[in-house]
Amino acid sequence: MVHQTEDVQGLVRRPPAPEARTAEAAGSDTTSPKRPRRPRISRPTLAGLGFIAPLAVYMVLFYLYPLVENVSMSLHRFTRATYVTGEAPFVGTDIYREVIGSATFAPTIVQTGLFVVISLVFQYTIGLTLAVFFQRHFPLSGVLRGLFLVPWLLPIIVSGTTWQWMMDADSGVINGLLGVIGIDSVWWLNADNALWAVIIANIWLGIPFNLVILYSGLQNIPTDLYEAASVDGASPWRQFWSITFPLLRPVTAITLLLGFVYTLKVVDIIWIMTTGSGSSQTLATWAYSMAFGKGSSAIIRYSEASVVGTVLLLIAVAMGFVYLAVQRRQEA
């Protein structure tokens, strides 16, 4: 199998490379005496730049500029009055030291880590289980699969509020069910349990995303592999671990990377359920509360919020590099 692909790649390489062809064309141009001297940048390059330009301008305007502004804000002390007076003294890394040295920083990092890792593990496992389950077609499987997308389609304000009601300590349906089976009711949304409450809701929210991507990944695995495996007498369990899981690895990598970034920056579901209070404060909700002077932060703290924003960005970029490394290893 592996040898075959290498052969195919070899075949593709055999014709002259595009660069070589361009060089030939350029050569024939210079021999023509009527033509003026070629500009240093060849016209195809110019055309290429022209095509890149819209994207480049877009990236600079909507990605680079806000990022640079964010970092600049974290190095200057912004207050509400800054917007009127324009005064924002440069303070170097002072604000970074204040934020990282504050008593909230370490617990928030731990909570963010728990939130992301536990959410991802369960979202992925449940999503994959469901994807494998729906791979066999049975009556109504399409309808059922569609129903699993509902969490994704509902506006988060609706699902978040519904979770908040269901988790109400005194009259929520979850405590009602626990009561039926004889378990003491839980105060889901208090400071200690808030993190677990939002993790549960977020897992529910993330399953459809994992289901859809992993299900489409499964469609690309050739069925003859499974036929061959069953001829060889491999059990379904063995088929999963020896065929499905290894061949799904590239899809798994991208699902987990996207899931990581999405989960890291989650504000809405947490904010609606607990306003980021108690243990449910993550880096993202902390940044939000400081940037808008809401929830745990009564005063608006633009600079501190952009420090946390920069930290979030660094984590996401680091994950991006991990993904690239994993991808490179898979291709090698």
């Binding site: 016209r43 195809p44 055309a47 730049l49 022209g50 095509f51 819209p54």
Partner: peptide, 11 residues
């Protein structure tokens, strides 16, 4: 080539 350059110019 001319068509390419033209497209780029339009962009």
């Amino acid at each position: 080539r001319t068509r390419r350059t033209g497209l780029a110019a339009t962009a």
